[in-house]
Amino acid sequence: MKEIVVISGKGGTGKTSITAAFAVLAGSDIVLADCDVDAADMHLLMKPDFAQKETFYSGETARIIQNNCTSCGKCLEVCRFNAISIIHDQYIVNPLSCEGCGYCARVCPTETIVNEIPKIGEWYISKTRTQGTMVHAKLNIGADNSGKLVAKVKNEARQITENLGKEIILIDGSPGIGCPVVSSLSGASFVVLVTEPTVSGLHDLIRVCQLIKNFNLPAGCMINKSDINPQKSKEIMAFLNENNIPLITELPYNEQFSAAMTMGKTIVEIEDKQLSELIAKAWNTITNKYV
């Protein structure tokens, strides 16, 4: 089983649009996993049926049972996250600030603080409109995006891929360099980096490349909107060269990206064939040459 993870560092480079286009091309040959669970968007293009839905609980949040509280103040004293405050003479936990370390409950002399495992989101197993299988999730607002939900989505996708006898999991990863993206990358066979030729595109590419180097993962790069700044595109290519990262393809700046999205379609399903041919070629290169 091979895992192809698409990441970008910077948001808005076209990562999800490109991943969805790959998914449409591959149809039921692959299992699709949307690991960009914080503000997930893939479902808008793939129209999954949400056939199977599970609640996801993770971490802990403290709650003070008011009746038993003697207002000794020990909890407030030990909390490093300013999560406990006194409101109308009552000690109250602010769940958005609580990190769930459990220290307050441990020092409470009257055992009046309980740790509850919060619901941080939901995950789903679906059939997409192109008959592929998709595992995806929705993270709750303000949830601790510790990567646990990402790991859950990946593990479910692996299980399904094995059960279905498929060979490839295609994963839409998270932006940034923090815990969700680290979680998206674990177990990756090949990383597709989507970037754009802007100062911030290159800056963020350099940071994610450091990250994948730490994990020793093979990668290739796609430059989207490459003609918006040919000079910057050259700089990106020079950087890729130095780091032995192959360039998979360059895609021109094309407003069909958002036009297709507005129709709820991917860029390989619209009349403009310029992009779809490049994307199809890129997918072939990735699956035949690198994975």
Partner: peptide
């Protein structure tokens, strides 16, 4: 930061006003 989870909460919880940018 982007998103709706802990980093954005941390960055906005002390603010007097929020501007949400969208496309």
């Amino acid at each position: 930061p982007p998103g709706t989870s802990c980093p954005v909460i941390e960055a906005t919880k002390d603010s007097d006003f929020i501007i949400l940018v969208t496309e």
